[in-house]
């Protein structure tokens, strides 16, 4: 699920202090605790141990975002084979989580995370080939919807009752062809 991400930058925001660095970093068994902390704060969902195990396996498709050396956000994806069982070499990429801590929003961190994923998903050497990237967004999360639309994601479906414990329980499926 994805909540709380970027809105389009307001052009009237005054000039910022320029001294800041945004960087991406690896998620490893040693700093997994930070991902757990982020998820607890960002999403109203408890992720299973399996989630964290899988994250360590996907390489460039799970990343931390650092702002001035503080860990403030992360993206975690899952690779999904199309037509499981066949020898198809096509796959989809599912964004499980993408989020940035509240005080650090609208600073381009979400964009950095998403473009990183898009870039790596479309690398020519990528195998299997990703044909699509998709995710779920709570129907009420306008901030997130606007953010993904900016990157050419489209609503392709609505899943009623997708969420169990939060309201509204419905989610849009956002997707983009690669």
């Amino acid at each position: 699920m994805v909540t709380s991400t970027e809105t389009i930058k307001n052009s009237k925001v005054p000039k910022r202090n320029t001294a800041h660095r945004i960087a991406l970093g690896e998620i490893t068994p040693n700093n997994l605790g930070q991902l757990k902390k982020l998820n607890t704060v960002l999403f109203p969902v408890n992720y299973s141990e399996k989630f964290y195990k899988d994250v360590l396996e996907v390489g460039e498709f799970a990343k931390f975002a650092y702002f001035n050396d503080c860990c403030v956000g992360a993206v975690c994806c899952r690779k999904e084979q199309i037509n499981q069982g066949t020898t198809s070499d096509q796959a989809k990429l599912y964004i499980m989580t993408l989020g940035v801590l509240a005080p650090y929003r609208n600073l381009g961190i979400g964009t950095k995370l998403l473009t990183h994923i898009l870039q790596h998903a479309t690398l020519p050497a990528q195998h299997p080939k990703f044909v699509e990237i998709y995710l779920h967004v709570q129907t009420s999360n306008e901030e997130a919807l606007a953010f993904y639309k900016k990157y050419d994601f489209e609503i392709v479906a609505t899943v009623e009752g997708y969420y169990k414990k939060i309201s509204p329980p419905d989610a849009y499926v956002l997707s983009r062809k690669l």
């Binding site: 005054p14 000039k15 910022r16 202090n17 001294a19 702002f67």
Partner: peptide
């Protein structure tokens, strides 16, 4: 001064 640079969130932290 309205043109003043504003600080990053880490400054508050």
């Amino acid at each position: 001064n309205i043109d003043d640079e504003i600080e990053q969130p880490t400054a508050y932290l």
